[in-house]
Amino acid sequence: MGKILKMIAQRLGLGLITLLVVSLIIFLGVELLPGDLAEAILGQAATEETVAAFRRELKLDLPAHERYFDWLFGIMQGDMGKSLANQRQISELIGTRLGNTLFLAMVAAIISVPLAVTLGVLAALYRNSFYDKCVNVVTLTSISFPEFFVAYILILFLAVKAGIFPSISNVSPDTDLWDRVYRVALPALTLTLVVIAHMMRMTRAAIINLLASPYIEMANLKGMPRSRIIVKHALPNAWAPIINVIVINLAYLVVGVVVVEVVFVYPGLGQLLVDSVSKRDIPVVQAASMIFAATYILLNLTADILSILTNPRLLHPK
């Protein structure tokens, strides 16, 4: 048991260091890149006084390390500073939007994960059959589709032609749960289609890899029934790769929402990020990037830890 705890502690430490370095990059990237931020935002016509005033307001006149620690401690306490574009508190802007984004990603995950894992396992069990070959071509095709292509096809058929779902997913904080699910149906479906192919291929590869191992062949030669081989020998070792596949795709979902949110005008964090990038509203971009990056890193960390916890070799040491 001690070995497992040590490995987990190691991963946690590594994750924490990564988070710190990433926050450093997100914050200091602005400093290191060429061009003066104040002049870039205010434009060529700005007088020296306005530039100086702007620098003071952003605290750009303080040394970089001081601002970095201010910013980092601020974020940890939920205070992310003010938006340049409309002077509102960033935490206020982000709060409900982050909830909306996570809700969308969650709905997509609830649909896609069980479906992808089942289909992937089936493709692995019936390898090289007609079904498997179809799956290969279909998934390869859908991996190649840009997200907005899938989104607009769904809008065309399900919203415009059939009129089943709304083409714009406008939700407000007081929309009730079922109405919310109805409104995010199309974006969630788009995300599902985007992520499912990838998840299936990875599940299939993981299972095939496993079924080729010597102990499965041994069990087979012993005359053990196939269902028992799967449950007793294959599944315990398959959890780690499958969980890995799922969590990596969840991480992908959280980032993949950016484009989908823009298509469906869904009030999420991704849309805020894109808007802020075109307005060059740096504090908001930094805060939103930090949240996305942290979610991504934490999910990958979870995958690591779960695969340690489900690894039979570590759970039953000799």
Binding site: V22, G29, V30, G35, V285, F292
Partner: peptide, 15 residues
């Protein structure tokens, strides 16, 4: 460790 879309957006804001 940083998703590339997010990273690209961050850098393009500045450049």
């Amino acid at each position: 460790a940083i998703p590339s879309l997010i990273f690209a957006l961050l850098i393009l804001t500045i450049t």
